[in-house]
Amino acid sequence: MKNPAGTFARSLIIVLITLTSITPFYVLLLIALNSPSRRLADRLFFLPEFYFRNFADAWRLSSMGTAIMNSIIITGGALAIVVLVASCAGYAIARFPTRFHRMVFNTFLFCMMIPPIINTVPLYTLMRSIGGINTRWAMILVSAANVLPFSVFLYSSFIRSFSREIEEAALVDGCTRFSAFWMVTFPLLKPVTSAVVIITGLGIWNNYAQAVFFLQRESVRTIPLAVSMFFQQYGARWNLMAAASAIGMAPAVLVFLLFQKYFIKGLAAGAVKG
């Protein structure tokens, strides 16, 4: 587009889109940083008062500290399991196409179409009978299982795309196929691993629909659960509620801004392989 009018229109649209995306965040901060007595009629309403008491009160009244720790433990634990287990399975499926492995792969492929809500109720009964309700370990295993299909799919299609010569060189040097995988192949999988960590990690971190079934006690609640609990208790005190929401989303925003490049790259890698 060479003509200046077109360029101007385009820039205007881009500014509008970004404003649309950012405004609700600004409103949230505005409410979170204003004292309860602030009225819209006040002068300079659209500049926050920087009333940080809301944050202190929200932190004190909610169990957000515990919730953040729980979210970190559950997401971290699930991701560690997923990366280990899915890379192994992806390798086996890509390199040793037996009938069993083809069946496993097709099952994973089919289950990618099934959102977790479908089997949540029977899963709940299973969790009850194995004592998994209100425990972090059970939530870790469930979260890991949910994202396995996608992760195995990503790993196997990536491993298929590069040659097995390097692994074979390791075999000549006396490695078994199993140790060749860990010493040679696994380190080469970093791009997929980061895609898996980012895409599935986001889903596990934000999981509410299942967590609300399995994590009912306050000591094991994750961030979305803690925020919704706080909303039910203090929902009428908007300034507090907004502060709690802002605290709840801060870790994700922080990680996103720090590792932005990897987010976009990881998503792109996932998309191209998908």
Binding site: C88, Y91, A92, V104, A145, L148, F178, F181
Partner: peptide, 21 residues
């Protein structure tokens, strides 16, 4: 050992996804 590398994923997925389904 490499022949069993898919097993951990199969077991985890079997117990916490396929069985409930």
């Amino acid at each position: 050992l490499h022949k069993f590398m898919a097993l951990p994923a199969v077991i985890l997925f079997g117990v916490f996804f396929v069985y409930p389904l």
